[in-house]
Amino acid sequence: MSKILLTTTRTVLTVIGLVIIVDCVALMAVGKINFGSVVPFLVGSVFVAHGLFWQAIRKFFGRSPWLNRLWYALWGLFVIWLISFIVFIYSLQQQIKLSQQPAPSVAAIIVLGSGTVAGKPTPTLAKRLDTAVPLIESQPNAVVITSGGVGFQRTRSEADIMATYLHEVHNIEFERISQEGKSTSTEENLANSQSILEEKGLSIAEPIAIVTSDFHTIRAASIAKHQGYQQPITVASPTPLSIRYNAWFREYFAFVSGWLLGEY
C-alpha cells in the first residue's frame, strides 16, 4: 500500500471511528445501552485503533504466517460485513418507498414511540406524529394508539406525551386516542398494543397501520409479521437529514440484534 493511500485510509478510519464513538456514547449516556449502540461503539473503537496504530497492529499480525492469515481473514470478514450493510441499505430504501405510498383503509393506526425530552416529543418522534395526522384525519373510524413507556429518568409515558402532542398541536380529540404506556421496545410496542386492539373488537388479521421513522420500517414490519399481524402497513415518517445516515447505520445493527434475539 502506498504511503499516500495508507495515510488517507488511516485518517478516514480515525474520523469515521470517532464519529461513531461519540454518537454511541451520547446514546448510552441517556440509557440506550443495547446491541444497536454497543456494537457500533466497538466497531468505531476498532476503526480508531487501526487509524492511530496501523503500523503496530500490522507488525503484530506479521509476526507469524498464522497471524498474517488471521489478518487477511479479518479483513475478508469486514468486506463481507460491508456487502451485507450495502444490501441492507438498498432493501431499506425500497421499503421506505413502499411505506411512503398512500395508506389504504385501515382498522387501526399505531404510532411507535421514539423518545421525549422535557415532556415533549423529540424531533424524530414529532415527525412520526405529524406523519400520522393526515391518516388519522382521513380515517375517522380507525382506532388510534400511541405506544411508548416511561423512559430513563422520566415520569410520564411516551404514550401520554404523544397523545398530548396530537391533541394540542393537531386538535386530535383525546377520547379518540388509546395509550399503550408500558413498552420499552418495538417488540413490546406491537405486542402490548394487541390487548388494546382486542378491547376495541379488532383482530390483528385486519389491516393495521404502523407509523414509524423511515429507517425503522423494515424492522417494524418484520416484528409485526412475526407476532401475527397479517396485514401490517408501515407508514414512514422522514428522518431529519442531519441524523438520517447515522440512523440508518445504527438501524443495521439493531436489525441484526432483533434477528439474533428472535424478534422475527
Results as ranks from 00 to 15, higher is better:
S2Q: 13
I4D: 09
L6I: 14
L6H: 12
T8E: 04
T9H: 07
R10E: 02
T11I: 15
V15M: 10
V19N: 10
V19I: 15
I20F: 02
I21K: 09
V22R: 06
A29W: 04
K32A: 10
N34H: 12
F35M: 13
G44V: 02
G51W: 06
Q55W: 07
R58I: 12
F61M: 10
G62D: 02
S64N: 12
W66D: 08
W66R: 15
W66L: 14
Y72G: 13
G76T: 09
G76Q: 00
G76L: 03
I80K: 07
V87D: 03
F88P: 11
I89P: 07
L92M: 14
Q94K: 15
Q94T: 13
K97R: 14
L98K: 15
Q101V: 12
P102D: 00
P102Q: 06
A103K: 04
G113D: 10
G115K: 11
G115S: 08
V117I: 15
V117F: 14
A126P: 03
I136E: 08
Q139P: 01
P140L: 09
A142C: 04
A142I: 00
V144C: 07
T146P: 12
T146W: 00
G149S: 12
G149Y: 05
G151S: 06
F152W: 15
E158G: 11
I161Q: 06
M162V: 05
M162W: 09
Y165D: 10
L166M: 05
L166W: 00
H167P: 05
N171M: 05
I172L: 01
I177K: 00
I177M: 05
S178E: 00
E180M: 05
K182V: 08
E188N: 01
S195W: 10
I196D: 03
E198N: 05
E198D: 04
E199M: 06
K200M: 09
S203K: 13
S203W: 00
A205V: 12
P207W: 01
H216T: 03
I218K: 10
R219V: 10
A220L: 09
A220I: 01
K225R: 15
Q227P: 08
S237P: 09
P238W: 04
W248A: 11
F249V: 08
F249W: 12
V256M: 13
W259E: 09
L260S: 06
G262M: 07
